[in-house]
Design a protein around this nucleic acid. Sequence first.
DNA 1: TTTGTAAAAATATGATCACAAAATAAGAAT
DNA 2: ATTCTTATTTTGTGATCATATTTTTACAAA
Lengths: 230, 230
Amino acid sequence: MKALVLPALERPEGMTTHDYAFARLRQAIMVGAFRPGTSVTIRGLAEALESSPTPVREALRQLTSIGALHFLENRRIVVPRITPARFEELISLRIVLESHAARRAVAHLSDRQIDRIVAIDEAIEAAILAGRKAAALIANQDFHRQIYMANPDQIAMPLIESVWLQLGPILGIAMEHVAELYVVDRHREAIDALRRRDEDAVAEAIGADIREGIGGFDQQAIAKLLSLAG
Amino acid sequence: MKALVLPALERPEGMTTHDYAFARLRQAIMVGAFRPGTSVTIRGLAEALESSPTPVREALRQLTSIGALHFLENRRIVVPRITPARFEELISLRIVLESHAARRAVAHLSDRQIDRIVAIDEAIEAAILAGRKAAALIANQDFHRQIYMANPDQIAMPLIESVWLQLGPILGIAMEHVAELYVVDRHREAIDALRRRDEDAVAEAIGADIREGIGGFDQQAIAKLLSLAG
DNA sequence: TTTGTAAAAATATGATCACAAAATAAGAAT
DNA sequence: ATTCTTATTTTGTGATCATATTTTTACAAA
């Protein structure tokens, strides 16, 4: 049993052990730290997190509720495997959910907020140029999140993050096998549409961004990645 | 502290205490057994379920992950309140998610499966005529679920159920204040479209079903319901 | 080598308990 | 009566432990 290492994460003062375990495990999955098919144990993670089974088990149960992990009938806990068909489903769900969320956020975005989103986009490009893959991924998610969250009554964000989590493990593999990031994104187009408050154009740009970005790997490349993940 | 009663639910042999607690609480929320704003306690539910805090807390944590409950900063656990704006967001999300899920299920539905869906639709009408509101609600959900689940690689169902759960408490209130159910549904139209394997028509019918069904209460009626829920 | 069986180890589960935080109740001061 | 303070009760949190299930290992039989 090799010792388990999780990506570091700051623990704010006053945060409960459970909340910290959940946040840290969630981030680990989100950035692809676990490979598909990996099995984890409650005790093992409790040790890695320097706590006890109880709060860890609660965190794991939550993660299964949002599709990030699977409890098998055996009571084994595994990182879900992804088939090409499942991958395609996830991407199409992203497109539907996020173009919808983007459209409904447009009316609530102030110029100030758009400026901040532009700054995030610049951070993404800087991270890509520096080869900081995980940082680029996080910043890219933040770009999308800042748009969708502008809608104060927004409901979709947790669902979208659930899809992101389910894509996490495959992203991890993709990052391993892609030497340099040449991310094609439509962020500029989305920003221009936001500035014009053009809801249709925003929805279209976000949809295209997803389709041509992570979802844009051709089927052959995906199949190869997924076979490596087996 | 009045004793808490939960809708009954059969417990399959071999089901863990945690799974049972989750299933029962989930169903209770889904059929509107809890009013918005209600606060629950771990110990109280453990007593009602004749178990201990540990498995109940795990179930509650899962339910918060899918938006069915809220852990406040106070550490109090409450059934979320719903504003008119939130309600509208939920309905629009249902439309987007479910018409998408329905469209992608069409190609996988066999004639046999469609026959079963027709049978469910008849069960819905029977329940409505008999005034069995909760049964009608459950059957209606089953109608939708059977369609979406026909897609074997389907990912959206858990997200859709999350939205259903968030609508549960308002449905409970609606059921209390509507003497007789006169549910307008587009199920026949959806079934006809399924038989023709017409994806666009199926998506359209499902969208209309949601829009004109639960979502079809006019804004004034919703506002009244929501004020009662406060 | 392969297959089947039994012992051992590892693991998930759920109840319990000590502790901390929060809410409630009770009483005093204004 | 109202407000503030204090004491009591209630409640969430997290560690621990006994138990049951599962997995792994060890070993015998084919």
